[in-house]
Amino acid sequence: MNTMNHASAASPLISFEGVNKWYGDYHALADINASVGKGEVVVICGPSGSGKSTLIRTVNRLEPIQKGRICFDGQDIHARTVDVNKFRSHIGFVFQSFNLFPHLTVLENIMLAPIQVLRREKTMARERAMALLNRVGLAAKGDAYAGQLSGGQQQRVAIARALAMDPPAMLFDEPTSALDPEMVGEVLQVMQSLVRDGMSMMCVTHEMNFAREVADSVWFMDEGRIIETGTPDEFFARPQSARAQKFLTDLRSH
């Protein structure tokens, strides 16, 4: 249970207003209205195909929307005046399959965007990258290549890479789903430390314990809609909708 509740309803960091998305005829996201406050941690869960990944990918414009508005820090992210690259540098995104750059060392992976996008100077970027590696517990692996690391280590590097841009918010798309069970913990630990430092976060995950310990809100999605929202306590103990109840029972029976 996240006792440091920074959620500020007055000025949400990320907001969805009437968001709809279609893939051809398939209605992937339907009438999404929700928001994430500064310092808030939102966990999105639901059965597969419910649109959770799609929703989180719309936030940094990896997926376009056909209807509605998404605002980041008060600004419509699809406005003509928005420089999409600059915008994306303000949001950290961590992929299920890590997507590290295999032709670069770990340090080079982390330094690439700060040098190219933020125009940081190389030595400064390197120092910062070393500090971040230290923070995720991989200080010795700076000169290694992605292929030489385990899945859990690669994902921690991916997190460091996203953090190198100093984003006010981080998005996690099933960060531990591709990991062997014994490595899930090390990644969740890093994510928890981010929360403790006040990071705003949207996280699609199946890790219910993580949600219970760290989330401020849980959004339950099914068939492209947010069916139910609540605090972790409320959601896990007393799910309101039948679908949420079924989902939790299925999850527990594993």
Binding site: N85, H90, N99
Partner: peptide, 20 residues
Amino acid sequence: GQMEAGRSLGLSYLQTMRKV
């Protein structure tokens, strides 16, 4: 995912092409 990761960090299409 390589292009997506590059774009998500804020690199432009051409930067991602060139560097990744």
